[in-house]
Amino acid sequence: MKPRKFAYIRPDTVDEAVAVLGEYGDDARILAGGQSLMAMLNLRLVEAAALIDIARIPELDTIRVAGDKVEIGAAVVQNRLLAWPDLKSRLPLLGALLPFVGHFQTRNRGTVCGSIAHADPSSEIPLSLAMLGGEVVLRSLRGTRVLAASDFQRGVLTTAREPDELVAAVRFPVAPSRHRVAFREVARRHGDFAIIAVAAMVEDAGAVRLGVGGMTGAPAIRRIEMNGGTAARDAIETLAWDLEGFEDIHASARLRRDILRRIGPVVIEEACRCAA
């Protein structure tokens, strides 16, 4: 399949990019890594009058530690973040889950921000942003706004981004060193979209924060109290019914709930073991 025709615009600065985006609005698509967008264009699942290529804008190609947050610009590709020497110490959750994002080929072009802007319900990177309580920085001619991850992703491929806004960066809070994490996902093949992805982070001795992707339109985040015995298992049982899951070509809602029941406790245990 071949994409329909579109115009191609390569601005040199963010100001230029948002000016062009302001002009085209919904008719334009931002091209950064293109690893979701190009596939959708090739399969004609989306159409665009113009693509605005931001991949070469130097101010967007930065990983910056600002206070207790790591800010990642819109042009930073996933493999670059994966190779960032401070990743494991500052963002251990991303260190654990980035290797599951796509393949080497797609991680070499796919961007961190692009994955969040795309908002696939089973994607690992939006799950990590939601788990860590991160932020999305949106820029437009009207100015800059910063949204919490939970306010940004509204549902399946749906976000709070306005048509004239560019996802310029995302901010991940740096994990306190006492936080320990674990991540697992179930997919047909390594690198495929996860059917279910589960992340756990030990917040303090008595509680774990659990993040689940693939059950609902946006990542589901819950705090689970660990008062010994079967508390965690019971909480996950409740959570599975609560989230319900959905049916698609890969799995039924029932299979999704079942996978969550099986891997949820394992991931929690792994995170706890890691913390001890």
Binding site: M1, Y8, L31, G34, Q35, M38, A39, N42, L43, L51, N79, G102, H103, F104, Q105, T106, N108, R109, D192
Partner: peptide, 23 residues
């Protein structure tokens, strides 16, 4: 044409990519 099969893999600036997902 969607980045799953890798049959179009080329190396661009030292990094392998799917040439079907790049303009």
């Amino acid at each position: 044409a969607s980045g799953d099969c890798g049959a179009c893999t080329v190396i661009v600036d030292g990094r392998m990519v799917c040439s079907c997902l790049m303009l």
